[in-house]
Amino acid sequence: MEHSEAQKRVEAYADNELAPGAATAFEAHLETCADCREQLGTVMANRRVLADALDPGAAPAALRARIAGITSASARPNLAHRRAAPAWWLQAAALAGVAILSSGATFAVLGRQDGGRVQTLMDAHVRAQDPGKAIEVVSSDRHTVKPWLDARLDFAPPVTDFAAQGFPLLGGRLDYVEGRRAAVMVYGRRKHTVDVFVRPSGDGPPPPRSADRRGYHLIGWRKGGFDWWAVSDVDADELKALRQLIEKDGADHSGRS
């Protein structure tokens, strides 16, 4: 390894970030170069000094207690939110109205009605990113989520955990689509969430098949007497994978019964 090249790698070596081959080559150079040995010694000594000098210590106990109090209080099913939901929906509808005026190109493709509905669903998903609003019943167990939803709806949504396939069930909540109650299953996808809205198919048009808006994707489908929408900021392909899991799951269940 050339000296000039080795000099550029002193820090990466000290940080233990050189690939094994490069590290071996760097070490071979160190054997012959007092200058690089000196620099490496400086960087490593400074790292030790900074690790001490820059450490402000552990989080104060009062802060820990405060956060623990807030997060455990919010983790309970949030009854206040359910009462507030219609107002949110009105707010979302107002937002959708603004969007209809401002993004005509999208709506030309989707149709006016779908466009409004897409916006409403996306707003619901985005709104749910606010702390404390995403999940009203927090559980990865479908036997907890399903009864909770069943008790609050006049229909029984299919609820399945797809953790083994990379979509763990995080919980559920109630939301509104066009003024009618919908169940929302919240799935995790790596560090993102996917909201799956479901409600019985009415007389209205089927859900829009897909839409993209400001980094959010939506796919919709009608199956088994239900209308489905999946909304997230994960790739549209991943939403399609989740849809296939849900459809296959539905087919498996109807085959068994």
Partner: peptide, 17 residues
Amino acid sequence: EDLVQEAYVRAWRFFET
């Protein structure tokens, strides 16, 4: 402390994971 609290409130629903 405010910053940490805001961040944790934002993240709390993922704590299980």
